[in-house]
Amino acid sequence: MFDRYWCLDKYNNINMSVMKARLQALDGQKTGIPFSRQKLVDYMQRIDRGLLRYDLCETNELLRFAATRHIAIHGYTMNNSKAVTVRRNHAALVNQLRRADDQATFPLTRLPPELRVRVYELYLRDFRIVLKAPTQPPLARTCRMLREEVLPTFYFRNTFVVSLQIHTGDARSSGTLLRFDLDSIAFLETLSPDHLSRVRKLHFNIMRATSTRQQRGTLAEVIVSLTENGDPRTSIKSATLPRGLLWKKRVIAGTEKVITRMESKDGRAILKIGDVYALRSALEVVFH
């Protein structure tokens, strides 16, 4: 199970010149770009969080921000216009406004339900497009009310990857077998029937079964989409075609046959754990 998908990007694999170029493109200027890597990462993370870059603001603007937010400013001198004092005043204001951002709270539970749902959608929108065997998001682990409201949106809005490993048959069975990897099994076991029924997209990642993850390599990716009223019931896409167009047609035919048998409610296919294993079996037949 993976539990870091919701964390801020640490920019470990991005060099400083790339980060500086991004900041310059966003700000339209070179001023205020820090020279240390840690400060650059802090700036990038502030942008990811949708926060202001106070260092680019004038001192009077910072004072207005502080007054509007009722933030008490310490260490600021009004009656001294020396350049050093001005710089110190500006730095003090920037630091205190940043600390206020980090300590800010939001009365989420006091919002009307329809606004809370909109907040959840915006929160989940910043996750990766495809999630590999994820744990439940932190917002769903704060209290029972948020858990009951966040998780349905979480499972409905995201695409979830389940990995299938190829095994050769033994003495009791012939042909090719597809088995879920341990992470996928752990993920599927965490899903209640209600949450599973809300999943709209499953991404089957078919790979070789080897001793190390680095050696596995993806052979095929099949995305099963369960759409809403007025749209095709399902669309299945193979990102890689190891056995050509005929293979793709057999994948589509096999998986669509499973989906047409799914229980539906108000025109929406209801995904059950048996359907997930039936989809795996349909893919397994193609690899025989």
Rank of each mutant, 00 (worst) to 15 (best):
T77Q: 15
T109Q: 11
R118D: 07
L115R: 07
R53W: 06
T142G: 00
L51H: 03
R46S: 01
D126Y: 14
N79E: 12
L93A: 07
H74W: 03
L178N: 00
T153C: 15
F35K: 12
E149R: 14
Y155W: 07
R118F: 06
T85P: 08
F35Q: 13
D181E: 05
N95L: 02
R125D: 02
A72Q: 13
Y120C: 05
Y120N: 08
T85Q: 14
R157T: 04
K132Y: 15
V130K: 15
T135M: 02
A100V: 04
L52W: 05
L122W: 11
D126S: 15
L97H: 04
R128F: 09
T142L: 01
L63A: 04
K39M: 03
V161C: 08
R147L: 09
E148M: 15
I73Q: 13
V162L: 13
H74P: 03
L131A: 03
R53N: 04
P112A: 11
T168F: 10
F154E: 07
A104Q: 12
A91V: 00
R172H: 04
N158P: 03
A92L: 05
H74M: 01
R99Y: 10
L115I: 15
D101T: 14
E148K: 15
Q165W: 03
G169C: 07
G169E: 01
L151V: 07
L146Y: 10
L146D: 11
D42W: 07
T159K: 12
L97D: 05
R69V: 09
L178C: 12
V41A: 05
R53P: 05
R64I: 09
L139R: 13
N80S: 10
T105G: 04
T176M: 08
S81A: 14
P107V: 03
A83S: 08
Q103N: 11
F160V: 14
H167K: 10
R157I: 07
R53K: 05
G50H: 12
S81G: 10
T109S: 02
A104D: 05
L51G: 00
Y120E: 02
A67V: 11
F154I: 02
I71Q: 04
T159D: 03
L146H: 13
N89M: 08
R125Q: 06
T68Y: 01
R144L: 15
Y123A: 07
L146T: 14
F160R: 12
D170P: 01
N158Y: 09
Q38S: 14
F127S: 05
V119C: 06
A66F: 00
A140H: 10
A72F: 08
T176I: 15
D42H: 09
Q96P: 06
V150S: 06
N158K: 15
A104I: 08
T135V: 00
Y54A: 02
H74K: 06
N80D: 15
Y155T: 00
A104V: 08
Q165L: 11
R179L: 15
V130L: 00
L139S: 10
F65M: 14
K132G: 06
T105S: 10
F156R: 02
T159F: 00
